[in-house]
Nucleic acid binder design. Structure first.
Lengths: 117, 117
DNA sequence: CAAACCTTGACACATCGATGCTAAGGTTGG
DNA sequence: CCAACCTTAGCATCGATGTGTCAAGGTTTG
């Protein structure tokens, strides 16, 4: 049977087994199960667990934040509603660090293409 | 002096004065101040306070969720990182309710236009 | 000036998010 | 079969959210 069991996955990703179950319940990463119900983490899941750690650490955000982003992706109506509300709040581009703004401009085109396809 | 004071604003929006201060500290709605430091809520703020209530109620989300969405809008680097992570998770369009998906398709064009301008 | 506001700050409490640990019971592999 | 793993469920903790209330001190206005 391919795939790491929960303790092995915990070992290589830096999460605790407890947290792997918690992350699963929160809908972020759901590994497949063996016939007996054992969680089996494949290469993809392990990678996403590692990058998830980095994401949270580097941007000071919570699992709940990622969960909400996921919800927005899955529920366009929600995404729309939030976007609509945000657009009623006054823009202030000075808030945005210069580097970020530049990167935004640079990648806008490809992001639009991605949205279309 | 135009603009409602905090108790008046609370009255017409349904939030408590306490929550108006809380919402302000969380960065969602920051009214301007009178010379003496009194909060003054204008028509725009009052409207956004009301729609904020609806947004939270109708989509079962928290102030923190909206705060995070705001952060994403203000920090494109964050937005990018989250989006990138989400894209590594397997898509499953069956998750999306049919109505939502339809609305998504219907409004995609205008959303793209909005993004470009 | 005095009543009725406003401000910040703090204490209080319920709920929730994030984690660990333990218990009772099934699975697996030498 | 037995040690070493896995599962779910539950209790326990600690910090963050959400919300009320009260205190000490400025402001406004009749």
């Amino acid at each position: 049977m391919d795939g790491l069991t929960i303790n092995e996955a915990a070992e290589t990703t830096g999460w605790s087994p407890r947290m792997l179950r918690y992350i699963e319940r929160s809908g972020l990463i759901e590994p497949r199960r063996s016939p007996a119900g054992y969680r089996l983490y494949g290469a993809g899941e392990l990678q996403r667990l590692r990058t998830l750690r980095e994401l949270l650490a580097e941007h000071d955000m919570s699992l709940g934040d990622v969960g909400f982003a996921l919800r927005q992706q899955r529920e366009p109506a929600l995404q729309q509603a939030v976007e609509a509300w945000l657009q009623t709040t006054p823009r202030r581009p000075e808030d945005v660090p210069a580097g970020d703004w530049l990167r935004w401009e640079q990648t806008k085109h490809e992001r639009l293409l991605a949205a279309i396809t």
